[in-house]
């Protein structure tokens, strides 16, 4: 209960784990570009191959990827059926009069479903192999050049850092408040949806009040420790772009190039 963090990080020592978070963010962006460039199902083999290689190199068990896909299973089925129902085509496989099942519809439904699976699996590879702290660091530094356009890279990263820090604290606190209200006879388990939502008020209000107080006290503590925004700030842990990072980016770019060539050749 106390160790829930945003995303699910699996600590490890693999080639992928050791990459600079910026590299991994870049890899994910290129991977997403790949899946979106593809318009035909068989070309998805290229990003799929990339994902498999990444998975093997990371040593992450396939179970984690399947877990990441679990929450979207209903969305997947829904999208699949929707496309099956409404995609028109010429190769009729089954004719019910009011509706025809076409080969195009099957192909299109499969294509979209596989693409979503690949996207979610790829994105979860990033959070599975990168600790939230490293991810925050990566985001801050990757977006730092955008500061000239007033993009609040530092503020965003600081918000993420604080959120990560306080998730376990607030979880503990909500558990305590819940116990206390249950001791006063509160019932969170019975009644219809409306009643249950209403019964959460005695938990939510103290939690909000406490979060505000925490925010207030934290702000004072940060100020006392000379915090004055991102201006002129340094970091103890410097991110280092190593040979492995270069290699990873080059391999990814090769995949993109191969895909583009294939797409042009088989247009």
């Amino acid at each position: 209960m106390r160790d829930i963090t945003l995303g699910q990080f699996v600590a490890g020592d693999s080639f992928i784990h050791k990459l600079d978070p910026r590299t991994k963010i870049g890899m994910m962006i290129l991977y997403i570009v790949m899946t979106f460039l593809v318009k035909k199902i068989y070309f998805l083999a290229i990003p799929f191959a990339y994902l498999v290689i990444e998975l093997i190199l990371s040593g992450i068990s396939l179970r984690y990827i399947l877990n990441a896909l679990k929450p979207i299973r209903f969305l997947l089925i829904f999208m699949f059926l929707l496309n099956l129902l409404f995609t028109k085509g010429e190769h009729v496989w089954l004719d019910l009069g009011f509706w025809q099942l076409t080969g195009e519809a099957v192909l299109q439904s499969c294509f979209l479903a596989v693409r979503i699976i690949l996207l979610v699996a790829g994105a979860s590879m990033l959070t599975l192999t990168t600790s939230p702290i490293a991810l925050t660091d990566g985001i801050e530094r990757l977006f730092a050049p955008l500061k000239i356009f007033h993009f609040p890279a530092h503020e965003l990263a600081m918000m993420m850092t604080i959120a990560l820090r306080f998730v376990p604290t607030l979880m503990d606190e909500s558990e305590k408040i819940r116990s206390a209200q249950m001791s006063r006879g509160a019932d969170f388990e019975s009644g219809n949806v409306f009643r249950r939502v209403k019964s959460m008020i005695p938990i939510l209000i103290p939690l909000f009040v406490s979060s505000f107080r925490k925010a207030d006290e934290l702000a004072i503590a940060m100020e006392s420790r000379c915090y004055h925004g991102g201006e002129g700030r340094t970091r103890m842990h410097q991110l280092k772009f190593r040979l492995a990072d270069l290699l990873a980016i080059l391999i990814t770019l090769t995949f993109v190039a191969v895909l583009i060539v294939l797409l042009v050749l088989f247009k």
Partner: peptide
Amino acid sequence: FQNPDNQLVTTVVEEDVAFGPENLGVDP
């Protein structure tokens, strides 16, 4: 300050200790 929870900024101990000098722009 009083509440030990509400004055630590980051998740990892050494990063939190580094928070102050980082704000002052001290060399890594």
